[in-house]
């Protein structure tokens, strides 16, 4: 099969970019979207052109490194799917495919389709952990945890930090990402002592980093490859409110 791609090319953060058209031939329905880009890139190199830069690593939908805007949708048309797990069988060769990087003020473009998402690491550094230095832990069975709580914590913990939620949000808010972490740790007994400070510190960091605020548009969950539920945001908001009431 042959596809027409319109790919965002931009040499660096300070330079202006634009869409460039490419035709790629010899694409099979079993190829992943990134394998299709590999085909394009090998050809570009042989033609002496610089290949399209894009982030990827595991190609299994778990590392969170890949992420492209495909026809205006973060991670493309399939629900609950990362870009690396998207296959060409879902695309009609008759339609050109527009491929762009995540767009959000705190995610500057590094080059072409690659963006700098380190702001998400800063949010976790601000408090997205349980303070448990190695060597001092009690026996793992000391505190039983109801299965339902453990399962709910797991659901929130499944976030891969890809940033699609930010890219999809009209305000450029990382609220779903932050709430996923706050919910994961906040649902567990081990996470209680730091629960309120964690929520507050991460939220403050998020604002300081220049992310937009959350107005509950729900666009984030539609593109989230791991199905992080919108209720996590309510959990986070509840913790932040409680912290404020307690005058922390």
């Amino acid at each position: 099969m042959r596809y027409t791609l319109r790919v965002w090319r931009q040499r660096g953060p300070e330079e202006s970019g634009g869409l460039v058209d490419y035709d790629v031939d010899g694409i099979s329905p079993d190829m992943s979207f990134l394998e299709m880009l590999d085909v394009l890139n090998e050809r570009l190199v042989l033609d002496g052109e610089e290949p399209v830069a894009f982030d990827h690593d595991c190609r299994e939908g778990i590392c969170g490194m890949c992420g492209l805007m495909i026809d205006g949708v973060a991670h493309g048309p399939e629900r609950a799917t990362t870009t690396c797990q998207l296959h060409m069988r879902h695309f009609d060769p008759a339609e050109p495919i527009v491929v762009e990087p995540w767009r959000a003020a705190p995610f500057p473009v590094v080059r072409d389709l690659m963006v700098d998402r380190s702001a998400l690491d800063r949010i976790v550094e601000a408090g997205g952990y349980i303070s448990a230095p190695a060597g001092a832990a009690p026996d793992a069975h000391a505190v039983p945890i109801p299965k339902a709580d453990a399962d709910a914590a797991f659901t929130a913990a499944a976030c891969i930090g890809c940033g699609a939620c930010v890219a999809a949000c009209p305000n450029g808010s990382p609220m779903l990402f932050t709430a996923a972490k706050a919910t994961h740790l906040g649902l567990l007994p081990q996470g209680q002592p730091e629960r309120l400070s964690r929520a507050e510190d991460m939220l403050t960091a998020q604002d300081d980093l220049g992310f937009g605020g959350c107005t509950q548009t729900g666009e984030c969950t539609l593109v989230c490859p791991k199905g992080i539920p919108l209720e996590t945001i309510a959990t986070l908001n509840h913790d932040v409110l409680t912290a404020a009431l307690r005058g922390r």
């Binding site: 009690p138 026996d139 039983p144 109801p146 299965k147 453990a150 399962d151």
Partner: peptide
């Protein structure tokens, strides 16, 4: 010790209905 450490950090291991790992 690894399992103890990871549980203390909040790693959500699978649990049984009784709440144990």
């Amino acid at each position: 010790q690894i399992i103890d450490q990871c549980v203390a950090q909040g790693v959500p291991f699978a649990r049984e209905y009784g709440g144990l790992l």
